Computed example of a mutant assay.
Amino acid sequence: MSHFLGVVIESLVAILLMLTIGYCMLLNKRLKRLKADESSLKATIAELITATEIAERAIGGLKHTVRDVNENLGSQLTAATEMSAQLKLQLSECDGVVRRLSKITLAARPSTSAVAPEPAPVSTPAAAPAPVSNAKAVAAAAQAFSERRRSNGLAA
């Protein structure tokens, strides 16, 4: 029996050794795959680092461009504000000039009761409308200009 027990133990140790050898072979295959994956992972990391550096340079360029645009836009905005103020001033002065012109043309206009109406010209088939005096034309233009200015808020 002791001999039989020795054979069983030896057989059990042999089976365990076979299982250990099989398991070691399986681990060897997995380690080889992991080693291959490591090299591809290193290549991927290197590409990622390169892409990150390119992106950082692009962001730096964009920041520089934004700074330049901000400076240019700020100066243009300041110039536009100044020009707007000048235009407001000029429009108010133009409004005063138009009022004075209207007063001048109204004062220069002859009163309708003092002047006898002109006889109507004989109409011909291709007759042009009766000529309007320069003072009346200027007064009408000034009045129309002033009305457009008041209704639209703009002179033209």
Rank of each mutant, 00 (worst) to 15 (best):
S2N: 14
F4S: 12
V7M: 13
V7D: 15
V8N: 08
I9K: 07
I9W: 04
I9E: 07
E10L: 14
I15L: 15
L17Y: 11
L19N: 09
G22R: 05
M25E: 13
L26V: 14
L27F: 11
N28C: 13
K29H: 14
L31D: 06
L34E: 10
D37Y: 08
S40N: 07
A43S: 11
I45G: 01
E47S: 14
A51L: 05
A51V: 00
A51S: 06
T52I: 03
T52R: 04
R57E: 08
A58P: 00
A58D: 07
G60F: 01
K63T: 07
T65R: 09
D68K: 06
D68S: 09
D68L: 08
E71S: 07
G74W: 02
Q76S: 03
L77Y: 06
L77W: 03
A80E: 04
T81C: 01
T81R: 11
M83S: 09
M83V: 01
S84L: 05
A85K: 12
L87M: 07
K88N: 10
K88Y: 06
L89A: 08
S92D: 08
S92E: 09
C94S: 14
D95A: 03
V97K: 09
S102K: 05
K103D: 12
I104P: 00
I104Q: 01
T105Q: 01
A108Q: 11
R109C: 06
P110T: 11
S111N: 10
S113K: 09
A114L: 13
P117F: 02
P117D: 05
E118Y: 03
V122E: 02
V122Y: 00
P125T: 02
P125A: 03
P125G: 00
A126R: 15
A127W: 02
A128M: 11
P131A: 04
V132M: 02
V132L: 02
S133K: 02
N134E: 15
K136L: 13
A141P: 00
A142I: 01
F145I: 00
E147F: 04
S151A: 05
S151P: 00
N152S: 12
G153W: 00
A155Y: 14
A156W: 05
